[in-house]
C-alpha cells in the first residue's frame, strides 16, 4: 500500500515538474507548483507511526495549507495586480527544456543508483528530489522573469523537502514548522520585492535588473 502510494506520488511530482518547465504561461506554472506542494505535503503519511501520528498530521495539514493553497493564491494575486505579461519569455526554447527535464531525470536516476545503494536512502524519493532540484535551478536560470524565479525557488525548496523525507526521518516539529514559516515569509517578501521592482522599473523581466555590474 505504502509503496504503491509512494510510486504514484513520485510519478505525479515528476509530471508536475514537466508541466512547470514546459508551460508558457505564469498561471500554469503557479498551478503546477500548487499541485506539487499538495502532493508532497501528503508524503509524510508514509512516515506515520504510533509515536508521531499527531506531529505528522499537523505537518501534513500545515504543509497542504501553505504550499498548496496560500502561496499559489498569493502568487496568482501578485501577477494579477501587476498586470504582468502572461507569457513567459524563455531564454531557451521549450523543446530544449523538455529534453533537459528528461535527461536530468535519467541522470538523477543513475546518481541515486550510484550513491543510494546503502540503506539510508529511500531511492524513489531521493531520485525525485534530485530531479526536482535540477528543474528548479533550470527555471531560475532560464526563465527571464522575476516571478518565475520565485517559482523556481519554490521548486528547489520542494526538492529539499522530498530529500528530507527520503532519509525517512523528520526533524523535530518546531524545526519543520520553522522551515515552512521561512518559506511563507520568503514568498511574502519576494512578492513584495516584485511589487517594488514593478513600480520602479515598470517591468518584471530580469533583463531590466542588470545595471549593477563588476
Amino acid at each position: 500500500m505504502k509503496e504503491n502510494l509512494l510510486i504514484w506520488v513520485s510519478l505525479a511530482i515528476i509530471l508536475t515538474n514537466l508541466y512547470a518547465i514546459s508551460s508558457s504561461r505564469l498561471t500554469y506554472m503557479i498551478k503546477a507548483v500548487a499541485a506539487q506542494g499538495f502532493l508532497l505535503s501528503i508524503l509524510p503519511l508514509l512516515l506515520i507511526n504510533e509515536k508521531n501520528i499527531i506531529e505528522m498530521l499537523i505537518l501534513m495539514f500545515v504543509g497542504v495549507v501553505i504550499k498548496g493553497l496560500v502561496i499559489p493564491h498569493y502568487l496568482l494575486k501578485t501577477i494579477k495586480d501587476i498586470k504582468v505579461q502572461r507569457n513567459v519569455n524563455p531564454l531557451i526554447g521549450f523543446s530544449f527544456s523538455i529534453i533537459y527535464a528528461l535527461v536530468t531525470s535519467v541522470l538523477s536516476f543513475y546518481v541515486v543508483k550510484k550513491i543510494g545503494s546503502n540503506h539510508m536512502f529511500s531511492s524513489a524519493q531521493a531520485f525525485v528530489a534530485i530531479a526536482t532540484a535540477f528543474i528548479g535551478l533550470y527555471i531560475i536560470v532560464a526563465r527571464r522573469n522575476v516571478v518565475s524565479q520565485i517559482i523556481g525557488y519554490l521548486i528547489l525548496e520542494n526538492s529539499g523537502f522530498i530529500l528530507s523525507l527520503s532519509v525517512a526521518v523528520s526533524q523535530p516539529l518546531f524545526v519543520e514548522m520553522g522551515v515552512l514559516l521561512d518559506l511563507l515569509v520568503g514568498v511574502f517578501i519576494m512578492t513584495m520585492a516584485v511589487n517594488h521592482i514593478y513600480s520602479e522599473h515598470n517591468s518584471v523581466e530580469v533583463d531590466s535588473l542588470e545595471r549593477l555590474t563588476q
Binding site: Q149, A193, L209, E210, R211
Partner: peptide, 12 residues
C-alpha cells in the same frame, strides 16, 4: 531602481 536590483540579487 539600483537598490531594488541589489535586493533582488541578494534575495535570490
Amino acid at each position: 531602481p539600483l537598490s531594488i536590483e541589489a535586493m533582488w540579487k541578494y534575495l535570490i
